[in-house]
Design a protein around this nucleic acid. Structure first.
Lengths: 193, 193
DNA sequence: ACCTGAACACCGTTCAAGT
DNA sequence: ACCTGAACACCGTTCAAGT
């Protein structure tokens, strides 16, 4: 019963709390800003206590990113299953991923931090999954094996590259009109029919 | 005359030497690996001496990247001026930039380190220049203003995104055959005629 | 004009001791 | 079961002193 009271009052922290706080910081200020001491301050404890929950800063990052990976997967693919027509599904995926939900913000931050060894495997899995999905949809839409694969690469590269470009040029992404025009251009150019 | 002897013997270092060493480290191990102490060891001096040449690690990075920016600009655009036909020039640019010269390796490393404030302005200038060049070439090839701009964005995004994807998936880039097939796919899909 | 060596601040990590 | 507080290592930075 003591345990229940503690849960309700949130007097003590769990590993989950640290992971969620880390994700907030990533979304707000990037991966590099996830530092044990500031995080501890944010959570109202001393940095020493962090090491009861995690063996290292890196372990915290891994936990946080795995959590993100799971939710982003559910968000993105969950919404697509409802759409049977492959071309429509392709458009939906591109649109979904190109508008700024929170998972999308974190994806951007990870893109900027590919330098960090913890990031690469996560993005690798996420991209692989999306690429496979795109390839399958292009096949269903009638393309041959090789063409479907290359077209999938091109479409996904167009997405990642555009995001990257926005980050580089430092516009807070394009105006909505301009962005929509670009998305249309991409879809009419790359998605058959 | 003492000065001349010193130059010949290279007994002492210049800011240039530090910048070049930094670029080597970036190409080999990424931006994060540029640390004052290891660099000093590499150059056979103590880290204290670094601060005679630069006020900070950040200033070193700025100097190194500006040097890279200049040479990469000369390399890429220098070779294109010889090609008058816009479609051929577009293909040449894409090919040039997609094969792994040293500037290209550093570009990749910078892509991974967009997190760092020093990197963004450099990549911003480089990308802006390439985008403008692409847009102009598409116009010369007959596209209207808006279409040329969107097509340039798409082509450049296809390049950056593909690079990014290669970095993410951690293949040491695709097999040459597969890569060439992809490049062909992109060019036939995106470059008119 | 360039370099050394000692010092300091900051942050990740450890750990004995507290509740 | 979770947290504190003091300690240490590492690296960026400073600076007085050397050549």
């Amino acid at each position: 019963m003591v345990a229940i009271v503690q849960k309700l009052e949130k007097t003590r922290l769990s590993a989950e709390d640290w992971a969620l706080a880390a994700l907030d910081v990533i979304a707000e200020q990037g991966l590099a800003a996830v530092a044990v001491e500031p995080l501890a301050r944010r959570l109202g404890v001393t940095k020493g206590s962090f090491y009861w929950h995690f063996p290292s800063r890196e372990a915290l990052l891994v936990a946080a990113l795995e959590r993100w990976e799971k939710t982003e997967q559910e968000t993105v693919f969950g919404q697509l299953e409802a759409i049977p027509e492959p071309r429509a599904r392709l458009r939906a995926l591109f649109q979904l991923v190109a508008h700024e939900l929170k998972p999308h913000v974190i994806y951007s931050e990870l893109l900027k931090a590919l330098d960090h060894p913890v990031v690469k495997p996560v993005l690798s899995r996420v991209s692989e999954r999306r690429l496979d999905y795109l390839t399958a949809s292009f096949r269903q839409a009638g393309l041959g094996r090789i063409d479907a694969q290359n077209r999938a690469r091109l479409l996904y590269a167009a997405y990642v590259g555009f995001l990257q470009l926005s980050l580089q040029l430092g516009q807070p992404r394009l105006h909505h009109d301009e962005f929509d025009a670009y998305v249309n251009h991409v879809m009419t150019t790359l998605i058959p029919e």
